[in-house]
């Protein structure tokens, strides 16, 4: 027990001395340590190893989607007829209300009826 106490006292003394030596580091060393810390904090963290398979899977999926779209565009080109005619642009840019277009057939019939009469 006495031996253990003496050992503990010794360790405490050593700790005190080491702690005081840390507190009394010269200003130049402290400044260099601070600079080293700031430089270290500028480093970008690397992606952890366990995320690598996830990254690979995401990259592969993206590549497959791009490849599929490209494949479709090469072997199944868009037909000209499927492109909206240019005159439809008038419909898109006109200021007429939707009610007008819904009743367009009626207005057509009315015009024909007027001409006939």
């Amino acid at each position: 027990m006495k031996h253990h106490d003496a050992e503990q006292t010794f360790i405490e003394l050593v700790k005190q001395h080491l702690n005081s030596s840390v507190e009394c580091l010269d200003a130049s060393t402290v400044a260099r340590l601070q600079r080293a810390r700031q430089e270290a904090l500028l480093v970008n963290p690397k992606r952890p190893f366990w995320l690598w398979p996830v990254s690979w899977a995401a990259t592969t999926c993206t590549a497959l989607v791009v490849l599929t779209l490209w494949w479709g565009s090469v072997f199944n080109p868009v037909e000209i007829g499927s492109i909206p005619p240019v005159e439809d642009i008038d419909l898109l840019v006109s200021t007429e209300t939707f009610d007008f277009y819904e009743d367009l057939d009626f207005y057509g019939w009315l015009a024909e009826h007027d001409q006939a009469s």
């Binding site: 270290a40 480093v43 952890p48």
Partner: peptide, 21 residues
């Protein structure tokens, strides 16, 4: 002294780079 500073800086960089998360 200088090598000790370098070792501490290397240690800091490695910790941030690999284990910050």
């Amino acid at each position: 002294h200088d090598d000790a500073l370098d070792l501490v800086q290397d240690t800091m960089i490695k910790l941030v780079e690999r284990y910050a998360r």
